[in-house]
Design a protein around this nucleic acid. Sequence first.
DNA 1: CCAGACGTTGTT
DNA 2: GTCTGG
DNA 3: CCAGACGTTGTT
DNA 4: GTCTGG
Length: 227
Amino acid sequence: MFEDSSFKEDVFKKFGSFRDTIGVLEKQYNIAPTLNIAIYTNTKVYTYSHFGLIPSWASAGSSMQINARSESVYEKSSFKEAYRQRRCLVPLNGYFEWVKDPVSKKSQAHFIVSTSGDYFVFAGIYESWYDNKLKKTILTCAVLTTEPNNTIAELHNRMPVILESDKWDLWLNNRSDFRELNTLFIPINSDKIRYFRVGEAVNSVKNRGEECIKEVTETVPRQGTLF
DNA sequence: CCAGACGTTGTT
DNA sequence: GTCTGG
DNA sequence: CCAGACGTTGTT
DNA sequence: GTCTGG
């Protein structure tokens, strides 16, 4: 996430004024689990949130989950309450998938973006959790997943639930019918999404800059044959 | 009743 | 916190 | 997700 | 191999 101004404009147009605790977004090209990710909550707050949902009852952060399967989110104890009461939008300019080469065991990262050049909004859930180390309550969140469309199936067997703006209100509204929410849990159309290979920078959380989404076209150097 | 689990993805 | 299993 | 660590007692 | 940290 590195450019959130059009998302904020779109949220304002759709829902009116909201509380913005972020202000000027810190550009982030590699949001690993545990790092801060921007979310827009069903309580009209735009805020950073710890990427990786920790149930309120969990004593340590070890039970953190970055994804929740949309097929079962309504029944899992870790997600149930968040799903019922704390849904959010997760705006992102793109996301990554890694494909592991079975021979070299190396992971090739891909950056996935919208074909329209627009940002994505993922369906998210969030939770408050008291951090004993920081001695304060933090927000944590997870992204819902579904089966992949044809484009993403080339990379992976799951993909995030992506919401177009006409679905935002249904997702966030506390009065929404749960049967209707289920209609959102489908992959976005294949032609609305594309991807390209990126370099190794994104593989390390130390790298958080623009180099993480730089396209690489050359193929991975072939491994030398032994003997 | 109490104890124990509570999750996903990817890989095998 | 809440559900499941015993 | 990937990268990087992974340990204690005793001695200095 | 498996866990932790980011």
